[in-house]
Design a binder for these strands. Structure first.
Length: 286
DNA sequence: ACCAGGATCTTTACAAGTCC
DNA sequence: GGACTTGTAAAGATCCTGGT
């Protein structure tokens, strides 16, 4: 084994198994170098980009990020050893950073499931029209701030049985059952002496202000308790938005249209989806 | 195209109120 | 008393901006 590296490891008291894996990785790396540079490259010729190329190749050959990071750590030990024993004047690996092990946002509840729940929610006689309306809009991907729209922004056209809601950066359309449940609530809300459709009564001032986070979450929580298995994470506006983005992605929508649908920047949507997509690829490969 | 930094928005957890 | 609402603060995540 090259340059007494293995001896060095044994001296440090590493277990046999550990040493074997170190040996495997360093050999693998040296073979790589040898295959790229047939003219017999010496250690001090190895530069950072050689190492990066090697690591990239490992990633491409279906190794997980964790595995490749482990190899990186081993190679760091190796080069550190070479440096300490004056085999190389500078350590080429010292500035190479670990690959990020991302914790990918997962779609805990698929959009199809959410839709099924929506149908049940709409038919639940125990629920108020308020709760139903909040959930209908949640399935359209509203975030908390989107709920604070004023009555003026709602357009109800009886002819084609559609309700249009103008949000800050997009328009939501409701049809059929969804429209009629929302309409029912909307007419009740006409009398809430506030400009806002959804309101929360403010304790101190005794007036109806724009709806508070907790009110929305409360309804989602109640629905989650009723319709989700116990061990599942409860529905939040965010998890629903993720499901929508992922659904659209699977339906091959462009980034632009997904961004538009959720009312976010294109760059944000692409970044957001990148995570989801890589996440599923990871899931598949393991 | 990509990243860091920070503004802004969401969520969580718990406290404290209201209503029946 | 118990169920449900509302409030607050702090942690966490997202999103945009501006630089490279």
């Amino acid at each position: 084994m090259p340059y007494g590296f293995i001896r060095h490891l044994e001296d440090k008291g590493y277990s046999e198994e550990t040493i074997l894996s170190y040996e495997k990785v360093t050999n693998n790396f040296i073979n790589f170098i040898a295959s790229v540079y047939p003219e017999n490259k010496e250690p001090f010729h190895i530069n950072p980009s050689d190492i990066k190329n090697y690591l990239d190749l490992q990633l491409k050959s279906d190794k997980s990020v964790g595995t490749v990071n482990k190899e990186l750590a081993i190679l760091k030990t190796f080069f550190n050893f070479l440096w300490e024993t004056n085999k190389i004047p500078v350590d080429p690996i010292v500035k190479i950073k670990r690959f990020k092990v991302q914790t990918f946002p997962e779609v805990d509840v698929s959009f199809e499931e959410i839709n099924t729940i929506l149908q049940k929610v709409l038919l639940n006689p125990e629920y108020t029209t308020l709760r139903k309306s909040i959930f209908i809009l949640a399935t359209k991907g509203l975030k908390t701030s989107d709920y604070r729209f004023k009555k003026d922004y709602v357009q109800d056209s009886i002819q084609d049985d559609r309700v249009k809601i103008k949000l800050r950066n997009r328009v939501i359309q409701l049809e059929g059952k969804e429209a009629s449940y929302f309409r029912e609530y909307f007419y009740e809300a006409m009398f809430n002496d506030s400009d806002y459709v959804f309101t929360t009564r403010q304790r101190k001032q005794k007036i109806n202000g724009p709806i508070q986070v907790m009110s929305i979450l409360n309804h989602l929580r109640a629905i989650s308790v009723d319709y989700l298995p116990e061990d599942t994470q409860q529905l939040t506006l965010l998890s629903i938005r993720r499901s929508i983005a992922f659904k659209l992605y699977k339906e091959k929508h462009s980034i632009q249209s997904i961004a538009k649908a959720l009312g976010i920047e294109e760059s944000t949507a692409s970044n957001y989806l990148k995570n989801l997509v890589v996440g599923t690829q990871m899931a598949k490969s393991t």
